[in-house]
Write a protein that binds this DNA or RNA. Structure first.
Lengths: 150, 150
DNA sequence: GTAATTGCAAATTCTTTGCACATAT
DNA sequence: ATATGTGCAAAGAATTTGCAATTAC
């Protein structure tokens, strides 16, 4: 699915390079976030860890997520749902998201025109652009056909 | 600036049509939101009302914002800042936003290509598109030149 | 007059933080 | 050994809600 334990090792290296202890909790959280292609909430992650029998306190989940984002191995997303989601960075370039308003499923897509377009618009308005965010809200195929997942 | 009291009257009509009392608080909140072209937070609105000597409880501010959004006269925005913003709908069509990450200033722009592009992408992924949201994050002209406003 | 609103304070939801105990190096 | 992490519970921030007092119609 994803390039196996490599990402976890990358996190281990990151921790060592920053003189931060490699704890079981950190590796457990990293595994859930980095070895998945889903866009999970802090709660999703805590629940998944509990299901795996490796419960981690939610404070630790949040603190580890901060490290993962800081390392560049994970990315934080805010789709305006009232909470944040986290996804593995997977060396992938910037991409946009389709969010199903029924089941919460997220699909990704990439469109280079957006990069150019937003850069141009920003310039027109005198803005120094950092980045942009596009979310398309709708109903996914599964939910349209009644086969709601999740 | 905006088409004067008309919008407020429209809100009065909305309230009457729904058998909802036209209270001073509701009109006060509506005035702050509808007669401005800014993207204000609930707190901005409460503060502005206090400054005008017409303090309104924050619960009432939130409850009135819900009515304003429900009436279609105001629009709710979530730029991922951790709180929501509200702007007057002003009969304007869908538009996108540039958000200054330094001062929080918001500028609007419209680009029809986005409508087509997002519709096409959604279709490609089997999504029934409702709407989309694009935010360009950067630093506005004023903040770049050190003339930070707000 | 009566039903609906208002404002306060308490409750909620997501996230962060303080601190005694536990753990990695 | 010792600095750092962990978990719990309390604290925060934005928003919502219950309820007695108040107001619109």
């Amino acid at each position: 699915m994803v390039d196996q334990r490599d990402v976890i090792d990358a996190f281990r290296s990151y921790l060592r390079d920053h003189n931060l202890p490699v704890t079981n909790q950190r590796i457990a959280v990293a595994s859930v976030v980095l070895l998945s292609n889903r866009h999970q909430t802090a709660d999703d992650i805590a629940r998944e860890l509990r299901a795996r029998g490796a419960s981690v306190g939610q404070a630790t989940v949040y603190r580890t997520l901060e490290l993962l984002v800081g390392s560049g191995l994970a990315v934080e997303r805010d789709f305006g749902e009232g909470y944040k989601r986290y996804e593995s960075a997977r060396d992938e370039p910037h991409h946009e998201h389709l969010l199903c308003t029924v089941c919460g499923h997220v699909t990704e897509f990439r469109d280079e025109r957006l990069d150019r377009m937003t850069a141009l618009v920003a310039e027109t308005h005198g803005f120094a652009r950092h980045r942009h965010r596009l979310v398309i809200l709708g109903v996914c195929r599964a939910c349209q056909s009644g086969t709601t997942r999740r």
